[in-house]
Amino acid sequence: MTQYIQKAKFEKTELDGEWIILNTEDFTVTKLNEVGGLCWALLNEIQTVETLTQSLLEKFSSQNNMEQVKRDIEEFLSQLVHCGLIQHVD
């Protein structure tokens, strides 16, 4: 079970339902949608696909099937890794 966590300390701000993440070491700016920002906030502690999926299902309780949310999370985490915002925890 792969674990993930934020790579370093970032500056972040929420603006009109979007999250703006500033990486002050690599000078990158990343914009996330609201649900992405929620996942990002949770990633200041170690998370897995399963724990993030569970958190989203609790937050948006009545609307979604677990498998779809899990696929969304997997895709999102791979994007965050590609952007250099999170890392695998050994």
Binding site: D26, F27, T28, K31, N33, E34, L38, L56, N64, F76
Partner: peptide, 18 residues
């Protein structure tokens, strides 16, 4: 709250001009 898939909307590197 309405669920939508978590997404990276944009990602860019800041270019500093000397």
């Amino acid at each position: 709250k309405i669920y939508s898939p978590p997404m990276v909307l944009s990602h860019q590197t800041i270019q500093f001009e000397t």
